[in-house]
Design a protein around this nucleic acid. Sequence first.
RNA 1: GGACGGAUGGCUGAGUCUGGUCGAAGGCACCGGUUUUGAAAACCGGCGACGUGGUAACGCGUCCGGGGGUUCGAAUCCCUCUCCGUCCGCCA
Length: 430
Amino acid sequence: MLDRKYIVENVEAVKQNCANRNITVDVDRLVELEVQRRGKLQLVQDLNTQSNAESKKIGQAKDSEERESLKVSARALREQKDSAQAEHDLIDREIKEIQLQVPNMAHAECPVGVDDKSNLELARGKHTCREFDFSPLDHLEIGEKHDWIDFEGGSRTTGNGFYFLKGDLVMLDLAIQQFAMVELSKRGFTPTITPDLAQDSVLEGIGFMPRGPETQIYSIENMNLSLIGTSEITLGGLYSGKTIAETDLPIRLCGISHCYRTEAGAAGRASRGLYRVHQFTKIEMFVFASPEQSDSMHEELRQIECDLFDAIGVPYRVVDTATGDLGGPAYRKYDLEAWMPGRGESGEWGEVTSTSNCTDYQSRRLNIRYKVKDKKGTHFVHTLNGTAFALSRALISILENHQNADGSVNVPECLQAWVGKSVIGQVPAI
RNA sequence: GGACGGAUGGCUGAGUCUGGUCGAAGGCACCGGUUUUGAAAACCGGCGACGUGGUAACGCGUCCGGGGGUUCGAAUCCCUCUCCGUCCGCCA
């Protein structure tokens, strides 16, 4: 969420930003209410001063007669204060409601456009798209051929969109996790296994809406808990309400969790197989940084994502996300889109990672600050997140890019030690 | 899951029985100064956050784990939740 003072002082910029992001918010109403609220707050504080003074006199009163008469006036003042406070709170709630809808400001270089058509390709990965001398299968065909992916079983036990992973694909899945954790540890990230559930207030702080008709979140009945859609939620929540010493920044965490998404209304050829599922495992990078660090930290996260996908031999392109496609919290967002030969008619790019600089948008909601030693006051930290691997989509990209004509799949060299094989799905020679 | 005990500023720790003089003693740490060739020690002074008004000095408001209540007034009394100890039960 943006600072109210900032919104009031930058009305036109905020409105333009909302338009660029294709989000409708009544900014003028917020400003009008905020001006009202300031006045009301002043009144509340004045009345409080008076009634505090009156109450203090009671303690020093000489006799019970004086005491009783002071009680009457003190009570009256307190009642006036309470009613002014109630009016203030009412206005405050309405402001809060609008304020939560206002998206973060966007980076000056962020491509402007109302949807993903304006996304800008920035770079390509180390590996070029492969020319197949056979007709490549999609990951689901490969997976079902070897009994690695079982959607039918998932559907029977849990529901549509759930699946079992089996056999060597599980080994590959775990290998990717190991590889990511080791690589990220080397780069200063603290490996973190997080809860798969979080309090609704934390979801909201990160920028999710846990309940309501539009929600993508599974929530627990009769509790204020929801299944997380990403460990960004728990990693951000980990420091909620904390004040961090500036010298401890940046704090780099890499979380591993299951991610749960209802994916309401999403279906079709483009979300076939593992591409869009209700549950997957994800290794997520999360960074708390100072405002001075956040831009370069964002580049660092993007570079790590590139390095990881270069390492597993998957071709990809890097996309600078347009304003209309940023979501609420992001100031700037880069996506990696991997080449998926089995997707669509003859291969398509599919989003595999995403890294966002959320500046102080999340930290203001979650109240995460940092303090400079020997300086008065605190400031909100900047938060950044980035996908290392979303396992479901990483598996798609490996299966489809590294498949062989006989249906087997080459294991990227960096993963072979953990898989224990250089090729999986090979039919043993008879 | 049951029974007690606890939660106070960066840390430690008084205050809670007996409500007002408590935004909160003392100590540690930290910062500035005196002293010293320099350092240590000693001594003197300073030292929370947020909001709000003000160019500023500064004023005002809020905050003693979270929420609610009693009262003119709550760190202090009552209810509730969370967390941490200790003992018991159960368990991977």
